[in-house]
């Protein structure tokens, strides 16, 4: 079993399901950035970006620190590989789906109405 708790995986999965948040993480792979710098390419207000950052922080993918009046964001250790991690979570969700589908198909193959 993975060491991460299911709740944590759900949080990361939902956090990364949003393309804007994946784009923010991609930006942070180039290095630390302030909320203002992150908001700029998205034509979003700083409060709106802050909401995204809160979700990412809550999922453990970024860390934030204050320096004077500025807040700096950086990828956390868990967030460094987070795009791959998102793909990993997607892979796990799909694998779980298709394993269940195998069982559904096995049930369907049984002739329910023999002719």
């Amino acid at each position: 079993m993975p060491h991460a708790s299911p709740a944590r995986l759900d949080a990361a999965f939902l956090a990364l399901a949003d393309p804007t948040r994946r784009a923010i993480l991609t930006r942070l792979t180039h290095g630390e950035a302030t909320v203002m710098e992150l908001a700029e390419p998205f034509a979003m207000s700083q409060p709106a970006v802050s909401r995204h950052l809160k979700v990412l922080e809550g999922a453990g993918l970024i860390t934030r620190r204050a320096e004077g009046t500025r807040r700096h964001c950086r990828l956390s250790k868990a967030g460094v590989e987070s795009i791959d991690q998102w793909l990993g979570l997607l892979r796990r969700a799909l694998e779980a789906n298709y394993d269940r589908l195998d069982e559904v198909l096995a049930g369907m193959d049984k002739p329910e109405d023999p002719k």
């Binding site: 299911p6 995986l9 969700a93 779980a96 298709y98 589908l101």
Partner: peptide, 11 residues
């Protein structure tokens, strides 16, 4: 049929 398998993570 979809309701039986398209469920994502456990739970």
């Amino acid at each position: 049929l979809i309701q039986k398998w398209l469920l994502g993570p456990d739970g």
